[in-house]
Design a protein around this nucleic acid. Structure first.
Lengths: 338, 338
DNA sequence: TTTTGTTATGCAAACGTTTCCAAATGAGGT
DNA sequence: ACCTCATTTGGAAACGTTTGCATAACAAAA
């Protein structure tokens, strides 16, 4: 391996000088700079980041743990997109990204704390927060730098990036109300996730604005899967009065609803309108194409990454919450019934 | 930060002893082991992996670069699945995974060599190999440990994991031939990818077995996208004699073909049968459901990870190629015409 | 020439581990 | 009690950097 000493020897200077050239230190004469650069080139020198990390007490690495449970990340386009957003920024700022997967939330927390404790990463990005998240507590207890993608309940005193779940769900519901629908079912996910709470809030807010009182039998909870979308819709269809529209908290659930609706020989949107969430690639391919809310996933990842890097590099930061806005994409599944 | 010295002080032993307890060295008396463990617990000690990496000359980290161009990784389920496979194994063997994204193949190569040169990672996993891959040459030139997921042209003298592309494409084509199809179009990807070459080979092999000579106008090349699937199928439909079946090298292309077929008012599979590749979640949702080849993506990732870890930890390894078999999943798009 | 001041460079310590080698400890045999 | 030998422990160097401090080099002022 070629080290800084080899370069120093070849350039006939001390290692310190080489180090300073590496750091673009101004107090090195142009002559020596040139000499050193030449030597580095000649030897194909690349600094050892491990050694640098040790003395700098910073690995210049961010941690990301993908939990299987987190919004069923693995079948979801969420996952690759957010990584792309994060990665673009980390690269731009010469950071690395350490990735771990976990099968459960407990494991996710464990991995997170381990990465930080072992000094492998300088900070972590947390995806999708829950109502009573021990991990968040532990992180702030240890003063570990972190940014969460999602909303943290109650306490706003953290760094976070989120999309406007309340507003988006409100808009989606309003869209259905404006089409004349009165009985709008809501297929929700587990309430332990704050985004599920928020989208429910948006849904309720829209109903209220139209002076409709929410009907408990129209609000169902399940996992964010096609299967649960299917089953919950079947339940809905067994109620006395069927809904005329379904708002699903995830496109996959909407797909599940599609299947039940078709099984019943009903037409979308004339018999039942459907709106999803996430703008899964599926949404524009399935028939009829699915109206859905498009979240700026890439941007959220990028923003979160920028935020934590800033937090790591500038001392005078204080907690901030960023909210990015989503967009309702209207497609066939909720077009006007002519 | 609590270091090994703090533990040593508290346990009234030397740092060396603590280190040995950490490494489960047998030559430490049970008494001291107990003392040290107690002290570690009390202080909540976690070893600094950076320091360890420096002296051990190993970061216990694997590198993975996802290139945008690589099989259009980002819209593809390939990407999350292979990461899951890799990550499961890295965790099991106490390795980490360093992830980078790149927008082009050149950038991918650059990032790869950088991670290795800077000693951030001990070895890398390369996805989807190309016909004339400079990266592979550079890696082996530098004696960097790597495993490729895919097939390397010509030279077999590397570590690799692949699925049985030739056999799988052969089987898929044969399946169509057995259904009585004679004019089977093949929507292929860029021939610079070895997997495209291999699947073409399988297709040709099946034709040959049925004494059919391949017709150039039935073999089209494009990118692995829905858009190109659409456009290539439109081209196909302008030929004198339309194909009676389409074999697409990727499900997304098959979806593109679906749209053209439907635009022409034709029925799948009665007018035209379609077979895809990859078993994208879409395949089982789209109507009619799509016959496709299911690749053991997770297993490929896991196998590749196991392979490189073995290569890193055991000195007496020599290059080996593993081939995992795929499975043809027959669905509505190619069922028997009754 | 000497002094002063600035600028460029080198020395050595430090980061938190691991591991070689030597020393201390203790048990068993005389 | 002493010696031998095996076992357990500690001291110190090493990994490849960065950086505070000191000094060398040199130009400008006296």
């Amino acid at each position: 391996m070629t080290t800084i000493k080899d370069v120093a020897n070849l350039a006939k200077v001390s290692p310190s000088t080489v180090s300073r050239v590496l750091a673009n230190n101004q107090r090195i004469s142009l002559k020596t700079q040139e000499k050193v650069r030449q030597a580095m080139l000649e030897l194909g020198y690349q600094p050892n980041m491990i050694a640098r990390s040790l003395i700098k007490r910073s690995s210049k690495t961010l941690g990301l743990v993908l939990s299987r449970s987190t919004t069923s990340a693995f079948t979801n386009p969420f996952f690759p997109e957010i990584i792309r957003g994060i990665s673009t920024i980390t690269q731009k700022f010469h950071y690395s990204l350490l990735l771990t997967t976990a099968e459960s939330h407990e494991e996710e927390a464990k991995e997170c704390l381990k990465m930080l404790g072992e000094k492998r990463v300088d900070g972590v990005l947390i995806l999708a927060s829950r109502v009573n998240d021990q991990l968040i507590n532990q992180l702030s207890l240890n003063n570990y730098p972190f940014v969460v993608v999602g909303r943290i309940p109650d306490n706003t005193n953290y760094y976070s990036v989120n999309n406007d779940n309340v507003a988006a769900a409100y808009l989606a519901t309003k869209h259905l109300l404006d089409l004349g629908h009165q009985r709008i079912a809501f297929l929700n996910g587990p309430l332990e996730f704050t985004f599920c709470q928020d989208r429910l809030a948006g849904y309720l807010q829209a109903l209220q604005e139209y002076n409709l009182s929410p009907e408990p039998e129209l609000i169902k909870h399940g996992n964010l899967s096609q299967k649960d979308g299917y089953e919950l819709t079947e339940e809905l269809f067994k109620t006395t009065l069927r809904p005329s529209a379904i708002f699903a908290i995830d496109d996959l659930m909407a797909i599940g609803a599609y299947q039940v609706i078709k099984n019943y020989g009903l037409q979308i949107p004339s018999d039942i309108a459907v709106v999803g969430f996430n703008d899964d690639p599926l949404a524009s391919i399935i028939e009829p194409t699915l109206t859905t809310v498009k979240i700026p996933i890439y941007e959220m990842g990028a923003t979160a990454a920028r935020m934590i890097i800033q937090l790591l590099e500038e001392s005078n930061q204080h907690p901030s919450q960023k909210i990015l806005s989503s967009e309702l994409i209207i497609r066939e599944s909720s077009c006007k019934i002519v």
